[in-house]
């Protein structure tokens, strides 16, 4: 039987131990947000979309540089898929998600082109890193627009993209920041900065898509010029 003060001391000891363990563990952010559908006149295109596993499960792990820091794990995959699906759905007349043999062949006669987004880079900063009261996320995307013939399915269900056939390839960057706020945790602030960065990526994509040289040539019906467009376009 443990007496009252001893029980309190033991409880305090356990609490202190738990706090220490918490401080040592990685801080994890699973990015979540509400993403609005874009208000645009949809382009008359039926677009296939392939989200690679690397994209759909995208995350970054940042190992602590010193004892004062903690490891960070930022998972953006689910939010990326949700966000881009919503954006493409508002930008194009019809969007078909291609994830396997069935979805590849179900509407192959209708699909005009297939887009494949990649997260090329993601960096973040928190006030601990910079001594500035701002949380920031910077992302760099790479997009490939290919004809449907370039997407191949395999017996194991995997899809591969033929790198020799493509209509356009371009990169775009996105930036999100959020200031420190009273009663806001680091995790909430990083999540908010990621949501702002995703929205910025969408705004950049929506306003620059038809200006990408390869895309413009393809939309004008000049497929040969589009396929020869090897110069990478970078949208700031």
């Amino acid at each position: 039987m443990i007496s009252g003060p001893k029980r309190t001391l033991r409880a305090l000891g356990i609490l202190a131990g738990l706090l220490l363990l918490t401080a040592c563990g990685a801080r994890e952010v699973v990015v979540k947000g509400n993403f609005p559908k874009p208000l645009m006149d949809p382009l008359p295109i039926t677009l296939g979309v392939v989200y690679s596993d690397a994209f759909a499960q995208h995350e970054i792990f940042d190992e602590a540089a010193g004892r004062a820091e903690t490891d960070w794990l930022v998972k953006t995959g689910d939010a990326q898929v949700e966000f881009w699906t919503t954006l493409f759905g508002g930008m194009f007349e019809e969007v078909v998600r291609i994830s396997d043999h069935d979805s590849l062949h179900a509407r192959e006669s209708e699909i005009d082109a297939v887009i494949i987004p990649y997260v090329a880079d993601l960096q973040y900063t928190i006030p601990l890193h910079t001594n500035v009261k701002v949380y920031e996320i910077w992302m760099k995307y790479r997009f490939r627009l290919v004809p449907l013939d370039a997407v191949h399915d395999h017996e194991n269900g995997d899809l591969t993209i033929d790198s020799t056939e493509q209509l356009a390839e371009w990169t775009l960057s996105a930036y999100g920041k959020t200031p420190t706020a009273f009663l806001q945790s680091d995790e909430e602030a990083v999540n908010l900065a990621a949501v702002v960065a995703l929205r910025d990526a969408g705004a950049n994509f929506a306003t620059s898509f038809t200006r990408v040289p390869g895309v413009a040539a393809w939309m004008a019906g000049d497929n040969e010029a589009a396929e020869n467009d090897t110069e990478a376009f970078e949208s700031e």
């Binding site: 509400n34 609005p36 559908k37 874009p38 208000l39 929205r199 910025d200 969408g202 705004a203 950049n204 929506a206 306003t207």
Partner: peptide
Amino acid sequence: INMMYPWFEPRT
């Protein structure tokens, strides 16, 4: 801003 997305983002 949400109902007008993406036309009133900081970039646009």
